Each structure stands twice: as structure tokens, then as C-alpha cells.
Simulated scan of single mutants.
Amino acid sequence: GISYLIAAIGIGRLLTYGLTGVLSDKFGRKPLIMVSSVIMGVFLIGIPFSPTYEMAFVFALLAGISNSAMDAGTYPALTEMFPESAGSASVMVKAFGSLG
């Protein structure tokens, strides 16, 4: 069952990558990052209190959507902030994600 929940995070990411990229370009990076943080908060509060497996699956999908939105906001924002060292900025996102 845990494997399916982990897979749901990946499914949520894959289903929303294209949409979050468009939203990031249309509304900006900061709003998308803020919405992503709120969605992740919903996941972090909801997953331990899920009464059923299906509800936990929905929260895991939300986590994937949040990850996708965070990626769509942070990677472009950092590459715009550091155009000469976009590769280092990308590594920085991964490093702070790992710390989190």
C-alpha cells in the first residue's frame, strides 16, 4: 500500500507538469510557489489523519501536484536570477529540497 502512495506522488507530478508550467508563465513564479506551499501544508496535515487508504491516495496526489508547482516556480525563477550560472541554481534547488 505504501508503494502505491509513493507512486501517487509521481502520478500527481506527471499529470500536472504541463499545466503548472503554463500557470507559472501566465501568473508568475511567486504565486505558484505560494500555492504550492499551501497545498503541501494540506498534504502534511491530511496524510496522518486520513481515515481510509483512498483518502491518503488523494493527499498523495496533492503532494505530487504541489511538487510539480514548486518545480515550475523555483527552477525558472532561479535561472532568471542567476542567468550566468543556471546549472548551479538548479543544484541549489535540489540541495535545499534535500535539506527540507
Results as ranks from 00 to 15, higher is better:
Gly1Pro: 11
Gly1Phe: 10
Gly1Met: 08
Ile2Asn: 15
Ser3Glu: 11
Tyr4Met: 15
Ile6Ser: 13
Ala7Arg: 14
Ala8Thr: 04
Ile9Val: 09
Ile11Arg: 14
Gly12Met: 02
Leu14Lys: 13
Leu14Tyr: 13
Tyr17Pro: 03
Gly18Ser: 11
Gly18Leu: 07
Thr20Cys: 15
Val22Gln: 13
Val22Tyr: 15
Leu23Gly: 09
Leu23Lys: 15
Leu23Met: 14
Asp25Glu: 12
Lys26Pro: 00
Gly28Leu: 07
Gly28Lys: 15
Val35Cys: 13
Val35Asn: 12
Ser36Glu: 05
Val38Trp: 03
Met40Leu: 06
Val42Gln: 04
Ile45Leu: 09
Ile47Asn: 06
Phe49Glu: 11
Thr52Cys: 04
Ala56Glu: 04
Leu61Glu: 07
Ala63Thr: 06
Ile65Lys: 08
Ala69Val: 03
Ala69Gly: 07
Asp71Ala: 14
Ala72Gly: 04
Pro76Asn: 13
Ala77Glu: 00
Ala77Met: 09
Leu78Tyr: 05
Leu78Gln: 05
Glu80Val: 00
Glu80Arg: 06
Phe82Ile: 01
Pro83Tyr: 07
Glu84Phe: 12
Ser85Trp: 06
Ser85Tyr: 13
Ala86Trp: 11
Gly87Val: 03
Ala89Cys: 00
Ala89Ile: 02
Val93Gly: 06
Lys94His: 08
Phe96Ala: 11
Phe96Ile: 12
Phe96Ser: 14
Gly97Cys: 10
Leu99Ala: 09
Gly100Cys: 09
Gly100Tyr: 10
